[in-house]
């Protein structure tokens, strides 16, 4: 079962390693992990989709909370009360005879064509994990040549997710530039 965690961390070298190392060591399976900046300078936001049961996910949350670099963890769960978005780039066979059929499907899925070559198209699709999987399945008979996905970014619907402000990042940038992520 997929469970979604949102983790706010210091934007510091090595933080991704700490999170990844924790998941490896405790044998928590990561389906996808994305990181990016947030509305607050110095704070990064990770979305983790984990393949695990509810109690293991809860344990992962408690372990994440023990990392010094973690400001907050939200356990969004697996229900439909979250907005979960993934982006896929799909290079698919679409020679002259198949092209119009593929373009129709792109329409249906409200995806975009972002590159056209003689025999192939690159399709960009944003949406829920289920939507992207459905598009991929639909295009498979045409021949998928290349598939890349970003991994999910998630947010709870409704109630705003406020970040506790009292715990500022370390004043100076210890961690140094040399410790790579």
């Amino acid at each position: 079962m997929s469970d979604v965690l949102v983790v706010y961390t210091d934007d510091e070298p090595g933080v991704l390693t700490r999170v990844a190392s924790l998941f490896r060591r405790r044998s928590f399976n990561i389906h996808s992990l994305t990181v990016g900046p947030t509305e607050r300078p110095g704070v990064s936001r990770m979305t983790l989709v984990v393949d695990t049961d509810e109690s293991t996910a809860r344990r992962a949350v408690e372990h994440l909370r023990k990392l010094v670099n973690v400001l907050e963890v939200q356990h969004l769960g697996s229900g439909g009360s979250n907005v979960v978005r993934d982006l896929a780039l799909i290079r698919v066979n679409a020679g002259p005879t198949k092209r119009s059929e593929v373009l129709q499907l792109v329409e249906v899925f409200r995806a975009n064509v972002v590159d056209i070559a003689e025999d192939t198209l690159v399709i960009e699709c944003t949406g829920s994990l289920a939507k992207i999987e459905a598009l991929v399945d639909t295009l498979r008979p045409f021949g998928i040549i290349e598939l890349g996905r970003t991994g999910a970014v998630a947010m709870a619907r409704g109630t705003p997710t406020t970040l506790k402000a009292k715990v500022a990042p370390l004043r100076t940038g210890t961690g140094g530039g040399a410790m790579s992520v």
Partner: peptide, 12 residues
Amino acid sequence: YLVTRAEDVVPA
């Protein structure tokens, strides 16, 4: 911690 600058010693 990996400290690479003297000014980071005390905070770390």
